[in-house]
């Protein structure tokens, strides 16, 4: 088993599949009255969050607690971090406290890579800058596999602000490893340069959502921040949602079996309309539940649990 999960590229197909299978076993646990395994008793998992992200932190916290680990939440706000302590000094502090795993969310791309050089424990990337969010990709892959029965050959459109999206990068890497075919859709200003060469040569790019939808098994809508408007990535929120938002009319262009995903939090009315978000094709709430199972699987396997 790998030691760290810094990027979805750390996972080969066998390892990724093992994590998804393990997540399935963890999900079965959620149906029991006692939702707890003793596996990580006595181990310490630190949630080191330099960005506000209540949903991701809670998901990791629930995952670690269900495995009986001791959980320490270290938030950048109201801690020595706001007094200017460096990441290295924070890492050495956590190291001295005996952290077996550090789950890190950080606004700077690559922060988990730096952290891994300074701690002995496992490092799990819970989102770094505009780089990656590999556990989100795992829970997304798990959700697709549960709903559609397979990943190999699945056609997935990822729509929106790919340039700034860590979710998109991790999903392209992981889903390609598992045999899915990815099409990235968005305005040209929000599709990063050389994306196919950078992530996977099979990745396709389209600027026209309508032409892509009829062939897709999955459409994943990314959160688009309205601040991007000020930076001229697109002219207005209204024009964005007209060209790249998913509404009922567009959803009807999808094949019957196709599902709609969103990593959350959503901008209802911007990239997705409420009718679509709340429809039976939407897996958005399911994704949250699967997040706990996927993160349990990651912590369980990284910290040496047996599958």
């Amino acid at each position: 088993m790998i030691k760290h999960l810094r990027s979805a590229a750390d996972l080969d197909a066998a390892t990724a599949t093992l994590i998804l299978d393990t997540a399935g076993e963890m999900a079965a646990l959620a149906g029991r009255e006692v939702k707890k395994l003793p596996t990580l008793r006595g181990r310490t998992v630190v949630n080191l969050f330099y960005e506000d992200s209540t949903r991701t932190r809670i998901s990791f916290e629930a995952a670690a607690k269900r495995l009986s680990a001791d959980v320490i939440n270290f938030s950048a706000k109201g801690s020595s971090v706001s007094k200017g302590e460096s990441l290295k000094d924070t890492a050495l502090t956590l190291q001295a406290m005996g952290a077996d795993a550090v789950v890190i969310r950080h606004p700077a791309s690559g922060a988990p890579h730096r952290l891994a050089a300074w701690v002995d424990g496992s490092v799990v990337n819970a989102g770094d800058g505009t780089h990656e969010h590999p556990t989100q990709a795992l829970l997304d892959a798990y959700t697709m596999r549960s709903r559609l029965g397979r990943l190999d050959g699945l056609r997935v459109a990822i729509v929106g602000d790919v340039l700034h999206s860590r979710v998109a990068r991790s999903n392209v890497l992981l889903l390609t490893t598992l045999g899915a075919e990815i099409t990235l859709v968005g305005p040209p200003t929000l599709i990063p340069v050389d994306i196919a060469a950078a992530l996977s040569p099979k990745t396709k790019v389209s600027y026209d959502l309508d032409s892509v939808l009829p062939d897709m098994d999955v459409v994943m809508m990314l959160r688009v921040q309205t601040e991007r408007m000020q930076d001229s990535y697109f002219p207005s929120a209204r024009e964005y949602s007209r060209r790249y938002g998913l509404d009922l009319a567009r959803m009807r262009k999808l094949p019957e079996h196709a599902i709609v995903m969103h990593p959350g939090p959503m901008n209802r009315g911007m990239e997705i309309t409420p009718e679509v978000a709340d429809s039976s094709r939407s897996t958005i709430v399911e994704q949250v539940a699967n997040g706990v199972s996927a993160r349990m699987a990651v912590l369980y396997l990284l910290l040496g649990g047996k599958a």
Partner: peptide
């Protein structure tokens, strides 16, 4: 900007 804009900056999520 953090590094050369190209394939590697796209992969690393660093502003080009």
């Amino acid at each position: 900007a953090q590094m050369h804009e190209g394939e590697v900056s796209t992969r690393l999520g660093l502003t080009g």
